[in-house]
Amino acid sequence: MASTTAELLDEEASTIADRIFGQVRQAIVEGEIPAGSKISEPALAARYGISRGPLREAMRRLESTNLVERRPNLGARVITLSNDELLEIYVIREALEGMAARIAAERMPDAAIADLKNLLERHRREVARADWQTYFQQEGDLDFHFRIVQGSGNRRLIDILCNDLYHLARMYRCQFGMKSDRAADALKEHELVADAIAERDGELAEWLMRRHIRASRRAIERRLAVEG
């Protein structure tokens, strides 16, 4: 009986940690908790009404996703990337997501491609409602880039792009890319990539995806130059 009770408590703590991990991750990615902010575990425990144990587990997971860093004598803070580090992520994304688009053109099932196109129709309606100034994509299956990488079926690419880099890249996409004068262009670029995948033209899909991410990187470079 004691063993069963302990197992239930461990399972409950794990479930709480999962929930808090997701909530704090979303707050960081969407800028509610800004880059560079110090993270107070007592404040978060009070905010979410939880004990320190599940919170520590959630914090460990946030560190593993590269959204939070912990330094001696400084505690935990939301990651802040230098301009060069941010642009490096886009260089990596250009190469690897281009590859993912090529493989997706070869492997993605017809039903998944149809779902991808339906997602883009939904995105078009949402961008139109925002007067073509904002292209906000929710995470996971509602994110075009996530769908393409998953559609490649390549486990190594999925691990790198959907785990190691995804939320960090999304954090800066939220900050720089989702509200901009590139909203209409970005949507059209997504549609062209989806068309190439539907036509099973891997070479074209890769070229279009690379061009799309390169255009986003250049837009960020221009913005950084103005702000700097």
Rank of each mutant, 00 (worst) to 15 (best):
Q138W: 09
G153T: 04
A101S: 05
L119W: 02
R102W: 06
R77K: 08
M1L: 05
G202V: 13
K188C: 07
R47C: 06
N163Y: 11
T5V: 12
D195K: 12
A17C: 13
A112N: 05
M178P: 04
W132D: 12
R129Q: 14
R77M: 06
S37M: 10
A196S: 11
Y135V: 07
D115V: 05
G140R: 15
Q138R: 15
V91N: 12
R56D: 10
G22N: 15
H123E: 14
I92S: 05
D143Q: 05
L116A: 03
I160G: 02
S3A: 15
E30N: 12
G153M: 05
S82L: 05
T65E: 15
L81W: 00
I33W: 08
A27M: 15
M59V: 05
V78D: 01
R52W: 08
D110A: 01
A27F: 10
A17D: 04
R25S: 14
T134G: 03
A128Y: 07
L74W: 06
R147Q: 11
L204I: 10
R56V: 13
V193Y: 03
F144N: 04
R56F: 09
I103Y: 05
D141Y: 10
G49M: 11
N66K: 13
L87Q: 04
A46Y: 08
L224P: 00
D159C: 07
E85I: 05
V24W: 08
I158P: 03
L116T: 02
S180K: 09
N66M: 13
G31F: 08
A205R: 14
C162I: 09
S64N: 13
C174S: 12
Q138I: 03
L55T: 07
R214E: 14
E121P: 02
D110R: 01
M178A: 08
S14F: 14
R19H: 14
I148P: 00
V24M: 09
L86I: 00
